[in-house]
Write a protein that binds this DNA or RNA. Sequence first.
DNA 1: TTGAAAGCGATACCAA
DNA 2: TTGGTATCGCTTTCAA
Lengths: 342, 342
Amino acid sequence: MSEDLTAPGGAPTLDEVARLAGVSRATASRAINGGHRVSPRALTAVEEAVRTLGYRPNPAARSLVTRRTDAVALVVPEPDERVFADPFFGHTLRSVNRVLDERDLQLVLLLARPGEEGRLLRYLSRRNIDGALVVSHHRHDRLAEHLSGLGLPAVFVGRPWAAVQTLSWVDTDNVAGGRLAAQRLLDGGRRRLATIAGPADMAAGADRLAGWCEVVEGAGLSASAVRRGDFTESGGLAAGRALLAEHPDLDGLFAASDLMAAGALRALAEAGRSVPGDVAVVGYDDLEVAERTSPTLTTVRNPVGEMVERATRLLLDQLADVGEREPEQVVFPPALVSRDSA
Amino acid sequence: MSEDLTAPGGAPTLDEVARLAGVSRATASRAINGGHRVSPRALTAVEEAVRTLGYRPNPAARSLVTRRTDAVALVVPEPDERVFADPFFGHTLRSVNRVLDERDLQLVLLLARPGEEGRLLRYLSRRNIDGALVVSHHRHDRLAEHLSGLGLPAVFVGRPWAAVQTLSWVDTDNVAGGRLAAQRLLDGGRRRLATIAGPADMAAGADRLAGWCEVVEGAGLSASAVRRGDFTESGGLAAGRALLAEHPDLDGLFAASDLMAAGALRALAEAGRSVPGDVAVVGYDDLEVAERTSPTLTTVRNPVGEMVERATRLLLDQLADVGEREPEQVVFPPALVSRDSA
DNA sequence: TTGAAAGCGATACCAA
DNA sequence: TTGGTATCGCTTTCAA
């Protein structure tokens, strides 16, 4: 009776590969993981066996001994409509995925409903993943503190509020971006300025506003015309209406996201204001929407794709030499993109 | 010397829990997994030990023996801008997540670039996940065939092209939806009808068009004014322009998605047509965008949230009694939502 | 370069 | 109800 090399039921195991290749399990394992310290002869035999059997290592078994999972989490602390409707999120997803694909890592999506961070942290601490990428971080979610406490490799996209030195993060210089927007309006001769700022509990919201105020006040003008938006179009619409009601004479408007700027454009249109004739408008992000508004948006470019890709690579670096690595912070410069609205 | 109950380095293991609780590993395991066949006394002791140690089972070890991973994949065969920009996707993500959260399952996002389905299938076949949810399925991606071959529990959102009987899926009756749209325009007295259809290689695109043609031709009118769009706003804009050029006298337009309808509205505005005065417009989906266009969109409701939630529960049912379950197909009825555009 | 053997941390069978 | 033990499939010393 000839030995049956294929398991009756399940997927082929390393053992079967080894038997078919005529080597030991240890050698087969080495051959599969890089092929170091394996004779060419054995290597080919194993590769051949892997191919004919259609062998794939069992990830659980591997992970049990290596203590790696080859999975990375994308943590989104606030999974409401806003996040998914925002093109920012789509870009993020694509960029993360592009990098992970290169190394055959899997992307686990972790959405934490507000107030349920505990669940998220428990999950993270179980070490079900090798590392985490955090986006859309809010001031009070304590994620930064907890992650740095956990010792789990993590990279933030967008500067975290706390533990700024001990964490790795990637961001753009949002303060400089706010300055650029203000300067553009000033250069265009606008003097009655207003802004639709982002959420106060997000670094991007606070920083863009800070840069804006700095330049506006530096020019001897008032920076008191401020409304908060939530980065959505409808938020921008509402804020735009409110600002127009309070400051009917405004001639320059900065919205801290293109989506909000699009909403503001609608508010201006409703009110019969021409853009950029009556009011010049500057947005932020430079995502597709900026080219689709009418008029098209002059905006501050936020290099989302590059940022996220860089953040992901930073995370992979940390995973590669775990523990050894100092936290890194990378700041991308913003740039003004001129179109028709200002 | 007292015995050290906590491991020096890593996370606590079941062994330590058992020792602390004064029971065997087997009993501790039972206590943790449902607590059946465990005395109340032992149960409390184990629970107590788990708490003080902060014990979390090692998922890899567990998965090695149970042969479950407690993870399900969301498979998106086409991860380009379109998918992420589409609010449909955001709804899907949220709905899936809501259901998975209930059972502590994790969501693994699998994006297959066109032409790289092989990689995806290899991954799926490695059984790194317990089941798959497939959205945005295209005619030629062979996903349906392969999945049903793999024997991996899977549920499609949107009718698959092949293996319709042997797979589980959830869909709306898109043919009926197309009929509803056509009927609405006819009822409004429109006679020169055109449609912006969805991609021909997606079931939703084909079915909505089929229903449309059925009613339009049934009324003795021509259904030859058709342009294909890719479900995006810019696609709708282009298609709208083309249709207006070819059929300057059209008075009724059906777009197979709200996003395309929004694009078409822009094309109509450009051309100086009033809506619904000159041209009545009906969209499809009834996502937020339908309420944000001007005029607001009369549209066919596509219950994405319910569909996806149902699909996810179907998948969980399959996972619960694996193998035993017959494939199920669920079809939700569409409904016309009246607003201002038609 | 190779292979024997010792785990990794859980679950599940079976006898007690 | 309990605990001993085999087992899951792989990686990784350690000798040879």
